[in-house]
């Protein structure tokens, strides 16, 4: 029909553009990589977790683990091999923090979670293992725990761990001074 606009009788160009458009989207979808690890906790949930003080293990709570009465706890030393060689908690396994997100370690952590095993991470200090602990908690491994005081505190008190129950010196966030007084 002659009374039609040129574009109405010839939508070929539209078809070509549309096919390119679809091709771009399909290419994008095909090249989309699904991330291997995704966060399970939102930042808000993570914040609530750390401010709530959950997921921590006190040194004296290791006693039944060390004397073998509790066998559902895996101790993981996140320091490097050298530090691990110098001394470590009895029965602990050494997985350096650099290797924690390796394929096989993630698979093992998943298995521990499935079997109801708790995993306790520790470094020299609590601070050293805090970051890795927070990462795994955010990834949804709610069986991953953090050892308060770290290896250093353990090494100092390893012969009388049970006696440290009332001790507060290993708890983080304590003010050692009355700042306002001292800094006058």
């Amino acid at each position: 029909m002659s009374n039609k606009h040129v574009h109405e009788t010839n939508p070929k160009r539209t078809v070509i553009v549309m096919v390119i458009f679809v091709a771009v989207i399909v290419a994008g979808l095909l090249s989309l990589k699904t991330p291997r690890l995704t966060y399970v906790l939102t930042p808000e949930q993570t914040l609530a977790l750390v401010t709530g003080g959950e997921g921590c293990v006190h040194p004296y709570q290791l006693v039944p683990v060390l004397n073998g009465t509790v066998d559902t706890v895996i101790l993981i030393d996140i320091r490097n091999k050298f530090e691990f060689g110098k001394g470590h908690i009895k029965g602990a396994e050494n997985i350096s923090a650099y290797d924690l997100t390796n394929e096989e370690n993630i698979a093992r952590l998943k298995e521990f979670k499935k079997n109801g095993m708790a995993v306790v991470l520790y470094g020299n200090t609590q601070l050293e293992a805090n970051g890795p602990w927070m990462v795994f908690r955010q990834l949804g491994f709610d069986n991953v725990m953090l050892l308060l005081g770290g290896y250093r505190y353990y090494a100092l008190h390893k012969h009388n761990l049970a006696a440290t129950k009332g001790d507060k010196s290993y708890l983080p966030g304590m003010a050692d001074f009355n700042y306002a007084e001292v800094a006058k």
Partner: peptide, 12 residues
């Protein structure tokens, strides 16, 4: 007071 709270804030 020490590193812990600050470190947790940093991670988030």
């Amino acid at each position: 007071n020490d590193d812990m709270l600050a470190d947790q804030a940093w991670v988030i």
